[in-house]
C-alpha cells in the first residue's frame, strides 16, 4: 500500500506538468481546455476522465508492445521454433472483462451528463430566451421577450441561464462557443434545436460555425459578450431606441434606399441581412474583421468597415451581400462616409 502511494506520488509532478500544459493550451476565450462556464466544464470533466482511462490503457499497450518487440526479437543464428500457443482462456477473459469495466466507468457519467445537459431551460422563467438563426455566413440573435434582434455579437447577462432556440435560414450551421459550451447544429425549421448554457464571468468569448456551410464557413465567427445585469438592461434599452441616421440628409437618403432594403437600424429597415443597430460598438465587422484600436488583433472599427464595404467578396468569399459599388452604384466617397457613420453608431 505504502509503495503504491510512493510511486503515485512520484507521478504527481508529472500530473502537475500535464495540467499546466493543458491549461496553457489555447486562448482563454476560445479553448475547450480552459472552460469558462458550467456546460464547458462538464464536457471537460468527461474528457479528463476519458483521457485518464485512455492514458492508462495506452501505457499498458505500449509497455507490452515495447517489451515483446525487444525481448522476443530474433537474434542472429537463432533458429528454433517457438512453442505454438493456441491462446489462453484466462488471459482472454481478462482482457475482455477489464475493458468492459473501463467502458462502464466511462459510460455511467456519460449517460448522466447527457441527461444533465439535456436540460434546455425552455420553460425556465428566469432564463433569457434567445433565438439563434444561422445564415450564410452570419449569425442572427433574436430576443423574443424584448422584441429585439441583433447580429454577430450575442450580448448576455453573466450568470444567467440562456435558453437557446436554434434554426437556420439556409444550409446547416453549428453554433459553437468552445470556452462556454459544446456545439449544436442549426437545422431548418421543423428540426429546431434547443439548448442552454451560461457564462458566470463577464467577458468576451469567441464563437465559431462548426458545420461546413460554404466557402466562407471558416469566417462565420461571432462573439458572446457576457455583461452585468445592469449593462444588459441598458443595452436592451439602447437597442430599442429610435434609429440614428446619418446627419447629412443626402447620405441618409442613400443609406435608407440602398442599405435598409436588407438591413435594419433601430425601428427602421428590414431584417434580411444583419441588424446594424449599434454596429460601431461591436467586437467585429462581418464577424471576421476584429475591431481593436490597439491594432494587436485587428484594426479600428471604421477601418474595418471600409475594408468590408469596399471588398465584401474579398473579405468573405461567397457572401450574399450585393457589392456597394458594383451592384448598388455607391461612390467610394459615399461608402467611406457610410462607414464613418456606422463606426460612430455606438450603443453606450
Amino acid at each position: 500500500m505504502m509503495r503504491t502511494w510512493h510511486s503515485a506520488r512520484r507521478l504527481l509532478p508529472l500530473i502537475a506538468v500535464f495540467g499546466t500544459v493543458l491549461a496553457g493550451c489555447g486562448r482563454e476565450d476560445l479553448s475547450v481546455l480552459r472552460p469558462q462556464g458550467p456546460a464547458a466544464e462538464s464536457s471537460l470533466g468527461l474528457m479528463k476522465l476519458a483521457i485518464s482511462i485512455m492514458i492508462v490503457v495506452l501505457l499498458i499497450v505500449f509497455s507490452i508492445a515495447a517489451y515483446v518487440m525487444i525481448r522476443f526479437r530474433r537474434k542472429p543464428g537463432q533458429n528454433e521454433i517457438p512453442e505454438q500457443i493456441e491462446g489462453s482462456f484466462k488471459l482472454e477473459v481478462l482482457w475482455t472483462v477489464i475493458p468492459l469495466i473501463l467502458v462502464i466507468v466511462l459510460a455511467v457519467p456519460t449517460v448522466r451528463t447527457v441527461f444533465a445537459l439535456g436540460d434546455n431551460h425552455s420553460g425556465d422563467k428566469n432564463a433569457i430566451k434567445v433565438k439563434v438563426t444561422g445564415h450564410q455566413y452570419w449569425w442572427e440573435f433574436e430576443y423574443p421577450d424584448y422584441g429585439i434582434k441583433t447580429a454577430q455579437d450575442l450580448i448576455i447577462p453573466a450568470g444567467k441561464n440562456i435558453a437557446f432556440e436554434l434554426a437556420t435560414k439556409d444550409v446547416l450551421h453549428s453554433f459553437w462557443v468552445p470556452s462556454l459550451s459544446g456545439k449544436i447544429d442549426t437545422n431548418p425549421t421543423g428540426a429546431t434545436n434547443r439548448f442552454s448554457f451560461s457564462a458566470p464571468k463577464e467577458g468576451v468569448y469567441r464563437g465559431k460555425c462548426a458545420e461546413l456551410c460554404g466557402p466562407s464557413h471558416g469566417f462565420m465567427e461571432f462573439k458572446v459578450k457576457a455583461v452585468s445585469n445592469d449593462e444588459f438592461k441598458q443595452w436592451i434599452k439602447a437597442q430599442k431606441a429610435p434609429a440614428v441616421l446619418p446627419e447629412d440628409p443626402a447620405l441618409a437618403q442613400t443609406f435608407k434606399e440602398q442599405c435598409l432594403k436588407c438591413h435594419a437600424v433601430g425601428d427602421q429597415g428590414l431584417s434580411v441581412g444583419p441588424n446594424l443597430t449599434g454596429i460601431g460598438s461591436r467586437e467585429s465587422v462581418a464577424g471576421i474583421l476584429l475591431n481593436d484600436d490597439t491594432r494587436q488583433d485587428g484594426a479600428p472599427v471604421e477601418e474595418n468597415l471600409k475594408t468590408w464595404l469596399h471588398d465584401t467578396q474579398g473579405v468573405k468569399p461567397g457572401n450574399l451581400m450585393p457589392d456597394p459599388k458594383q451592384d448598388m452604384g455607391l461612390t467610394d466617397d459615399e461608402i467611406d462616409r457610410i462607414a464613418d457613420y456606422l463606426a460612430g453608431y455606438k450603443l453606450n
Partner: peptide
C-alpha cells in the same frame, strides 16, 4: 491504431463529443 481507438472511445462520450465534433 490503439491511439486512434482510444480517441474513438473519447468521442463516444456524447457530452465530450459536443466539443470534439467537427473539430
Amino acid at each position: 491504431f490503439t491511439m486512434g481507438g482510444v480517441t474513438g472511445v473519447m468521442l463516444a462520450s456524447a457530452p465530450a463529443d459536443f466539443q470534439f465534433h467537427d473539430t
